[in-house]
Structure formats: C-alpha cells, structure tokens
C-alpha cells in the first residue's frame, strides 16, 4: 500500500519527465546477473534489477511426452511469490499474480522456442526430459517479469543435462549443455499519466494505470501482456515496441 502523498510525488515526477529515484522515463535500474548459485540445480541464477532480486533454477526430470508431440521434451515454468520477498506476499498456493507472472515468463521463454525441445527426447512416445524452471523473488521491488525472464534465461544458458544411464538419472559431473536455441528478454513498462516508464518499481506499479510487458527475441516480438485496470493508448503501445527493441539489446548483454 502506498500513501496518497507518495502517489502524488511519483505522478508529479513522471509528469515532469523524471522519477522519484532520480531515473529518467526510459532508464532501467542497475542490473546484476550471477549464475551457478545453487549447485543442486542443473542450472541457476540470481538476477537483481535495482531493489528487485529473484532466483531461478532448472531441474531436469524424466517424463512422458504429450501425445501430440511424442518426440519432444517439455519446458515448464513456475513462479511463487515467496512471502519472504514482500510483506504483502502470503504463503500458500500461487494466486493470480503469481500465476500471471509464471505464465508470462513461460510464454516469453517457451513459446519463443528458446529451448530446443526436439533434443530432449529419450524414447519417442515414451520418455523425454522435462525441464522445470522455477522462479522465486527474494526481494520484490517491482518488475518481477523482466527479472524473472532474465534469471530464467541465465539459468537455462548455464544448465547442464543429466545423463540417463541404466534407467537411472545421473546428475554427477555433467558436461553437456541444455539445448538453447534462442535468447529472449522482456521489457516492462508502466503507464503513469501520459508517460510510459520502463522498469517500474513496485510503488510506480501501484500508482500506474496499466502495465505492459513486451517479450523480445532476436528483434521480434514474441510475447505481450497488458496488466492493470487502466488502459493504454495505441500510440503508447507502438512507442513501447520501439523502446523494447532498443532495451532488449542492452538486456541481452547480461546473458553473455
């Protein structure tokens, strides 16, 4: 919850072309990416964007392929708004915010064909690798979408395949990379008045009329999600696309 005074301060700042934390309308907060943070995971990363920090990890398990795609593995993305990350997050099964977060990250990463799932087949129609990507905020200060996508990608990029030997999963001394075909990032905006601020903080999201997340893969739009109970003007959406493409170049550098 945010006070009326603070909300006004945020709106006034944005209206005059700046932000309460000193950023410009089109500035991201500082980004930090660290990989290999959980040795038990096949791949893992922590990402911080300003005061937001998230941890992502990959576990590879055996599973049965979907009947309509018998020779493909599966990538599943989950997110939990862990109550340690903010005083308004509650313990318990994921609610709509967590499910939206997971599904938007999933759409950006899975639907863009980031993982080459054809290389995850063990026995056609019977046994495939299922990649579970799970994302948890450690400290939530807005823009969990972009931090989540970045952490998920960083974890995938560094993930190693377990081996399947004598009907058992071996997770020791892994060398083979998990097959990653494309790099995806997302860029999130919040509409405050007539401006679209990039990388919104939690307070900015709270005063915003609407939110827009743009998933970008190699210069193309691969996922979109509008959130919030207000609206976006058509020209704002076009502006967001242009800016998202520009920001994606900088975000991609963090995945190298």
């Amino acid at each position: 919850m945010i006070s009326n005074l603070e909300a006004k301060r945020i709106r006034d700042a944005v209206a005059s072309g700046t932000r309460t934390d000193g950023r410009g309308i089109d500035d991201f907060r500082p980004i930090k990416v660290e990989t290999g943070v959980v040795a038990k995971a096949e791949g893992s990363a922590t990402v911080s964007i300003g005061g937001t920090s998230v941890i992502a990890g990959i576990k590879m398990n055996l599973g049965t392929p979907f009947p309509d795609r018998p020779s493909e593995g599966v990538l599943m993305t989950g997110a939990e708004l862990s109550p340690m990350a903010h005083n308004e997050f509650e313990a318990g099964p994921p609610r709509e915010d967590a499910i939206e977060l997971a599904r938007v990250i999933d759409r950006s990463i899975r639907e863009a064909g980031v993982m080459d799932v054809s290389k995850l087949c063990i026995t056609e129609g019977e046994k495939v690798w299922m990649a579970n990507l799970d994302i948890y905020p450690l400290n939530a200060d807005g823009n969990l979408f972009d931090a989540g996508v970045l952490a998920g990608m960083a974890a995938l990029n560094t993930a190693k395949m377990p081996e399947y030997v004598d009907e058992q999963v071996v997770r020791e001394n892994l060398k083979k990379q998990v097959p990653v075909a494309h790099q995806v990032v997302s860029v999130t905006f919040a509409r405050i008045g007539d401006a679209l601020v990039v990388d919104p903080t939690r307070d900015e999201l709270e005063v915003s009329e609407a939110r827009l997340t743009v998933g970008v893969c190699e210069g193309k739009l691969v996922a979109l999600q509008k959130g919030g109970d207000g609206s976006l003007k058509p020209e704002m959406v076009e502006d967001a696309f242009k800016r998202a493409l520009k920001h994606s170049q900088k975000l991609l550098k963090h995945l190298k």
Partner: peptide, 9 residues
C-alpha cells in the same frame, strides 16, 4: 524449500 534446492526436484 526451493524446488531446485535438492537433488530430485
């Protein structure tokens, strides 16, 4: 526990 904090998810 985080899902990936252990050997088997």
């Amino acid at each position: 526990m985080l899902s990936f904090s252990v050997e088997d998810r």
